[in-house]
């Protein structure tokens, strides 16, 4: 047994764990973020993909010990309000459950552009592979803001989906890339304005 500390979605998690504990298990069983899924345990399906210090890893093939002290982002980290629900429980937000679903994602603090694009384009059916797809695409689009459809297919070629045939996932990724470019341009111009 060994005590390790990981930062997961910005929160420090310390636990004494068996040396054999996989990062996947640390995330799911110790930190309690079950959005990271175990689909094969052999680094083939990609359902367990997370970011470690901004790099994608398949968390079923990494020991928690190997990434001790480092910072992990899971799918729960993509839409931060899910991590701080208490701040949001107001009469207004309870009324928000009636908010039409297509309005979701209109506000950047609700959902990541990829999440809202997946929703609009029906890029998920059973949803089990979705967290891994989202994490891989987030990482990819941040580095490659203007991909072709072919590029997107290659980017997710370490992730399996058995439901969608991938077509709508590619549609969603292209849509999200566009949104992210617009947001980045907006952020740049704001920064320019601040500089000026």
């Amino acid at each position: 047994m060994q005590q390790i500390t990981l930062t997961i979605n910005g929160k420090s998690v310390t636990a004494e764990v068996d040396e054999r504990t996989l990062l996947l298990e640390f995330i799911r069983d110790v930190a309690g973020y079950t959005g990271t899924h175990n689909g094969c345990m052999e680094a083939r399906c990609g359902c367990c993909a997370v970011e470690v210090d901004g790099e994608i890893v398949k968390s079923c093939n990494v020991l928690a010990l190997q990434v001790a002290g480092r910072s992990v982002t899971t799918v729960e980290g993509l839409s931060p309000q899910r991590l701080r629900p208490l701040e949001h429980i107001t009469t207004q937000s309870l009324a928000g459950v009636y908010k039409p679903l297509d309005a979701l994602g209109a506000d950047a603090k609700d959902l990541h552009p990829l999440q809202s694009a997946f929703h609009r384009k029906h890029a998920l059916q059973c949803g089990f592979c979705t967290p891994g797809m989202l994490m891989v695409l987030k990482d990819y689009l941040e580095d490659n803001p203007e991909p072709t459809r072919e590029d997107v297919r290659r980017a997710i070629s370490g992730n399996l989906c058995r439901c969608t045939g991938y077509q709508h996932i590619v549609d969603a990724a292209m849509d999200a890339a566009q949104q992210m470019r617009v947001a980045a341009a907006g952020a740049d111009s704001t920064a320019d304005a601040a500089d000026a």
Partner: peptide, 18 residues
């Protein structure tokens, strides 16, 4: 667009292993 999506997209959905 689907009602199911929100939980599945944000990781709050509970599958059997959860």
């Amino acid at each position: 667009p689907r009602k199911e999506d929100l939980a599945l997209l944000t990781g709050t959905a509970r599958f059997i292993d959860d």
